[in-house]
C-alpha cells in the first residue's frame, strides 16, 4: 500500500511530463533529475498549507469525503494480482468486491460536493453522482462476459484462464466498454464533467485545499492505476507474458501502457456535455454490453451442448 501511495505522486509527475511532450512544452524539469522532485515539492506544499474548512461547510462530512475516495480505491487494490502469489487476498468474489468499492467511491463526490455548500460544487456533485451511478451499470455488465468465460469472480482465476488467449480478443466489445466506463469512473478527461474546469472550476472539490484536496488528487491517480490494473488483469492477461521477463515486470509494463493511454486521452479529447454522456451511456453502451453478455452466454451454451 505504501508502494501505491509512492507511485501515485510519481504518476502525477509522469502525467505532467507526458502532457508536456504532447503539448510542445517542457513540463516540470527543474527540481531534481528530469524534474521528478517537483512532486515532492508539491506534496510538501500541500502538507504545509492551512487546513481550511470553509465556515459555511458541513464540517464532519467535509472532512470525511476526501478520506472515502482514498480508502475505497486502496481497498480495491486488495484483490489485484500483480503476479502469482503477489496478492493481498485472493477473494473468490474479487470482481464483485472491486465493483462494490468503486460504487462506494461515488459517495466521496456526492458528499464532498454537498458538504462544501457551494453552488458549483453542488452542480459538480450532481453531475458526478449521475455519471458514476450510470457508468457503474455498464462497467459491471461489460465484465460479465469475462466472468462467464472463466466461470469465476476471482481475479487470479481470470488471469490464469488467459494462458491461451487474452480476453481482449474474444471480449473486445467488453474491453472497450470497460475502458470507457473506467474513464468515466475515474472522472478523467474527456469525462471529467463533475470537475469541468472551464465550467465548474473543479466542481465538487472547489472548496477543498491543502491535504484534503491532496487526497482527492491522489485518489484520482490511484484510481487511474486501479483501472489500468483491472484492464490488464481482465483483458490483457495480467502478469502473463514471454518468460524472458519476470511476471511482475510484464504486469507493470502493461499497466503503464494503459496509464499512458489515459494521459494521451486527456491530452487529445474535448469534453462532451453531461446529457450527451448520459445519452451515450444509456442508449449505446447499455444495449451493447447487454448484447455482449447475451452473445457470450449463447456461445458458451452452444459449446457445452451443441444441438
Amino acid at each position: 500500500m505504501g508502494g501505491l501511495l509512492l507511485i501515485a505522486p510519481g504518476l502525477i509527475w509522469l502525467e505532467r511530463r507526458l502532457l508536456a511532450v504532447w503539448q510542445d512544452r517542457y513540463g516540470p524539469n527543474r527540481a531534481g533529475p528530469l524534474g521528478v522532485l517537483v512532486v515532492l515539492a508539491d506534496t510538501l506544499k500541500l502538507f504545509f498549507k492551512e487546513d481550511w474548512i470553509p465556515p459555511f461547510a458541513d464540517k464532519k462530512v467535509f472532512v470525511l469525503a476526501p478520506a472515502i475516495v482514498v480508502i475505497t480505491v486502496l481497498m480495491s487494490f486488495v484483490i489485484v494480482p500483480f503476479s502469482p502469489g503477489f496478492i493481498v487476498v485472493d477473494l473468490n468474489i474479487g470482481l464483485l468486491f472491486f465493483l462494490a468499492m468503486s460504487s462506494m467511491g461515488a459517495y466521496s463526490i456526492i458528499l464532498g460536493g454537498w458538504a462544501s455548500n457551494n453552488k458549483y460544487s453542488l452542480l459538480g456533485a450532481m453531475r458526478g453522482a449521475a455519471q458514476m451511478i450510470s457508468y457503474e451499470v455498464f462497467m459491471g455488465l461489460s465484465l460479465m462476459g469475462v466472468v462467464l468465460i472463466t466461470g469465476s469472480f476471482s481475479l487470479h482465476d481470470i488471469v490464469e484462464a488467459q494462458r491461451n488467449m487474452w480476453f481482449v480478443v474474444p471480449q473486445f466489445l467488453g474491453f472497450v466498454i470497460f475502458l470507457i466506463a473506467g474513464i468515466a469512473e475515474t472522472h478523467r478527461l474527456p469525462f471529467d464533467i463533475p470537475e469541468a474546469e472551464s465550467e465548474l472550476i473543479a466542481g465538487f472539490h472547489s472548496e477543498y485545499s491543502g491535504m484534503k484536496f491532496g487526497m482527492f488528487f491522489v485518489g484520482e491517480y490511484i484510481g487511474i492505476m486501479l483501472i489500468s490494473c483491472m484492464v490488464t488483469c481482465l483483458f490483457f492477461g495480467g502478469w502473463l507474458g514471454p518468460a524472458f521477463l519476470p511476471p511482475i515486470v510484464w504486469f507493470v509494463l502493461k499497466m503503464f501502457a494503459f496509464i499512458a493511454l489515459f494521459i494521451l486521452l486527456r491530452a487529445s479529447l474535448p469534453r462532451p456535455r453531461y446529457d450527451q454522456l448520459m445519452e451515450f451511456g444509456w442508449k449505446i453502451l447499455l444495449p451493447l454490453s447487454l448484447l455482449n453478455v447475451m452473445i457470450t452466454a449463447g456461445i458458451i451454451l452452444w459449446n457445452e451442448n451443441p444441438l
Partner: peptide
C-alpha cells in the same frame, strides 16, 4: 475555444 470545450492541447500549439 477548444479549451473551453475541454480540449487541453490545441491551445498550446496555437500559442506557439
Amino acid at each position: 475555444f477548444a479549451q473551453d470545450i475541454g480540449q487541453l492541447s490545441p491551445v498550446f500549439y496555437m500559442f506557439n
